[in-house]
Design a protein around this nucleic acid. Sequence first.
DNA 1: CTGAAAGCGCTTACAG
DNA 2: CTGAAAGCGCTTACAG
Lengths: 344, 344
Amino acid sequence: MIDVAQRAKVSRATAARALGGYGLVTQATRERVMAAAAELNYRVNELARSMRSGRSLTIGVVVADISNSFFTSAIRSIIETASKAGYQILVLNTDDDLERERDAVRVLIEKRVDGLIVVPASQNETEHLIVQSEPEVPVVLLDRRVDSHEIDFVTTDDRAAAGAAVRHFAAAGHKRIGLLVATASVEKYSLTMPAHVVGTVLDRVEGARAALAGLGFVTKPEWSRYCHSSVETAHEAMAEILSGPEPPTAILATNEEMALGALGAAQELGFQVPEDLSIIAFDDAPWAVVFRPPLSVVRRPVAKLGATAVELLLKKIEDGSYRDSQVLEAELVVRRSVAAPPGR
Amino acid sequence: MIDVAQRAKVSRATAARALGGYGLVTQATRERVMAAAAELNYRVNELARSMRSGRSLTIGVVVADISNSFFTSAIRSIIETASKAGYQILVLNTDDDLERERDAVRVLIEKRVDGLIVVPASQNETEHLIVQSEPEVPVVLLDRRVDSHEIDFVTTDDRAAAGAAVRHFAAAGHKRIGLLVATASVEKYSLTMPAHVVGTVLDRVEGARAALAGLGFVTKPEWSRYCHSSVETAHEAMAEILSGPEPPTAILATNEEMALGALGAAQELGFQVPEDLSIIAFDDAPWAVVFRPPLSVVRRPVAKLGATAVELLLKKIEDGSYRDSQVLEAELVVRRSVAAPPGR
DNA sequence: CTGAAAGCGCTTACAG
DNA sequence: CTGAAAGCGCTTACAG
């Protein structure tokens, strides 16, 4: 910048004003500075600008599982929305590991992001998300609630959606309905719900259970599994479910990995979908509509989820005391993976 | 930091040395400083550190299509590899738009990233990728070559892979083989190859054509389309191909979107895969193996691609004159979406 | 081993 | 409208 100022025969302050587009500069001076900057191929140093201004125009995103197409779509939407407001996105992945989440938050704070969007790994381990630094860094949770009331979130109404899925199964005649539940809280898979599942998982399970109870259905634990979120593990868990003496006739898969694992296991064991097994999956992955049969899914408004999180965060950045949380509606998309149970 | 120094009763320089872990400090002093920092909840300001040290420990990633699961997997691998070396990742998405790519590069340079990984939108418009700033910012291209010999790249041997796919079709008895080619250079879809396609696209087309020529097959333009990279457009293009008087019996889809569009159109028009139509797709998307029939695909080593790009970039960051480019092998994974053509 | 001082590249009152 | 000077929070020779 010193070189630019010299070449334009003005002070550094004037050059800064012309280049930064703030303060008062005459048209002629501005043009001279701009010309000099162009000749010298000058690039502003945003690091210095951020340090001085106290704003980095960067938002940190800490995501639990960047492989999941749901989160990828959310990130895409976050990038779009933020960039319209002049913000850049720093993405870190945690693989649902709490330690990595703490590290990620620390690193982003040190990089002086103006705000954080986090998909938290844990429902109750959240102290690191209440960022005490000076100035305070606002945080918005994406897709998952936590116990703490101090942190705002944007989620979907998964409880209602899970209930709707169960009632859709019931309407087709199913009584034996199982769940394949993705959760980071378990190594492989288990019959019982782990102690500390995140809010979204809990919502889906409780929504389904409430609906089952409302229908007066009995459910057996062996129809369901709580499962580490990978296709391979889901495949194994589903194979075990289907190998039981009286397997469920309908399965609700709580994410894309669970759905792929369930479908893989069903094929392997010769279960036809939907003739032998009906299935509904959370999230309308790009392949779901092309699948045979086209998958019935719970479609969550992922683009809106990401955009809403950014908008909320920007408001909090402007006004440190702004508080808001939102729960968006999810929608059951009926396609052809649900039919009457076998033998009816 | 001034507060920390005061509390520990040392100078700022000593506090900095203790906190930054460089220079000489006695054990006792270090402990006093660390204790003071902990009490005050001190966080180093990486912006200031970066400005002073001239290194931001951040790598910028400019990706053409963040919706595509291939690039998402690459980003995941980039994040993993970079974070092991202490680098963070700033991701920008261009949707294959050259203007947005230029903007993205400028923004990242201004943020003083230490290096750039770019999936370029254009093969010949590349001046903005030769970053003249001081100090020079090294650039590695991911997945796509460009004409300029000044820029290093990490790609896969798509020419060979496309050839292998065609020969696999031929071995099953196919003679009418079409291509569904994803390219950003066209609005919807067209019969002829647009002027400025990126290297990867060209490689796939030429690899397929060379193999077809080697087999002595005639090909008709109406068996193929060059298509904007979206499922919807691919669906339309494929529907048009299949509605022709003598449609191809085998289709090579050059990415995930093309594959999904092709499969959707085939279903809609009542073509059974593989009985009526054989298909091979580029990239082993997570759903490909679960699809019915399981899709035969060209599997590119995506994790290795991302990791190699980061490793190469880090070498270039260390040594500004380091030059290297790599072409990784792709692999044809035979599953069950290729059968003999109908009527044989 | 520790401290005083300069400087990274900007922005921002303040004075003129 | 423009300029001289201070300062953002660090690191880095240099001196002791």
